[in-house]
């Protein structure tokens, strides 16, 4: 590869890095602007917007509400996704392809269609819009991601581990909980954080399935529609930092496992 192309390629890469980071950096900067008016240039700086956000009960409530939804939906997704992965990995049976395809389905349905399909489905089962409905929709939407991550890890589990456990007197249930599950731990941590982020940041499902109480993205959306202020920047920046830290942690957890530790 000539040095010219190499340099050109690295320029494109760094250009792309700039493209994905600059909007977020500008957004964070705007949260420190000492004026009610969003826009450049920024002439004086303040921390007021942040102190205001941490004192704003509406924002804090929405944050807690989103967290509860994220944790609850993740618990369901992890359980079901792991179960399906256990069924699919290392077995061949009639209908395996269909089960795999159906598991992936929610990840392929465009957001708006998945949201209204669940709105209708919740009506069918008499589930009122609100926390339960959102948790339900998020749980279903995140199952494919858990299944894919857990399957990848499960495929690397040497069969001898399981055989050894059985030889030592463990029945399949005990062998699963004492051998398979500990082996899956990094995958479960990675997939769990991934699901929590997907749920926490989800807008379209939370918007159509929510009652009067907004999740954090729905609240930000409402604030954006009624007029922008640097307060939204402060909220978004807090969300950004939290998400980025958790995301990097999940990614590391999953990458480490692919190296076989």
């Amino acid at each position: 590869m000539s040095r010219g192309t190499r340099l050109f390629m690295s320029l494109i890469y760094w250009g792309f890095v700039v493209y994905v980071f600059v909007p977020l950096i500008l957004m964070v900067m705007m949260g420190f602007k000492d004026s009610k008016f969003i826009g450049f240039p920024i002439t004086s700086w303040t921390l007021d917007w942040y102190t205001r956000v941490f004192a704003d009960a509406e924002v804090l409530n929405a944050f807690v509400y989103s967290m509860v939804i994220a944790i609850a939906s993740t618990a369901f997704s992890l359980a079901v996704g792991t179960w399906i992965a256990t069924l699919l990995v290392g077995r061949s049976f009639f209908g395996r392809g269909i089960i795999f395809g159906l598991t992936i389905l929610p990840a392929l349905i465009p957001g708006i269609i998945s949201a209204i399909a669940f709105r209708i489905y919740a009506q069918l089962w008499g589930v009122a819009p609100g926390m339960g409905a959102i948790i339900w929709a998020h749980a279903v939407h995140n199952v494919p991601f858990v299944m894919l991550v857990v399957s990848a890890r499960l495929a690397t589990l040497p069969p001898s581990y399981h055989d050894a456990a059985r030889d030592l007197g463990a029945d399949p249930v005990v062998a699963f909980f004492r051998v398979t599950l500990p082996y899956l731990k990094p995958a479960l941590i990675g997939a769990g954080i991934f699901c929590m982020l997907l749920s926490f940041d989800d807008f379209v499902r939370s918007f159509f399935l929510g009652g009067y109480k907004p999740t954090l993205p729905v609240l930000i959306f409402a604030k954006l529609r009624s007029g922008m202020s640097p307060e939204i920047n402060a909220i978004s920046s807090v969300v950004l930092v939290l998400t980025a830290v958790l995301g990097v942690w999940a990614e590391r957890s999953m990458r480490r496992m692919s190296k076989g530790n």
Binding site: V20, F21, V22, P23, L24, L26, M27, M30, F37, I38, G39, F40, L197, F200, D201, D202, F203, V204, P217, I220, F221, L224, M228, I232, N233, S236, V239, L240, T243, A244, L246, G247, V248, E251
Partner: peptide, 22 residues
């Protein structure tokens, strides 16, 4: 990957700040 962990709303807002009249 870091920016892509952030949700739809926050990133859309970032684009609004980038492209707005000010």
């Amino acid at each position: 990957l870091i920016p892509f962990w952030v949700g739809e709303i926050v990133r859309t807002f970032a684009i609004m700040i980038l492209l707005g009249n000010n």
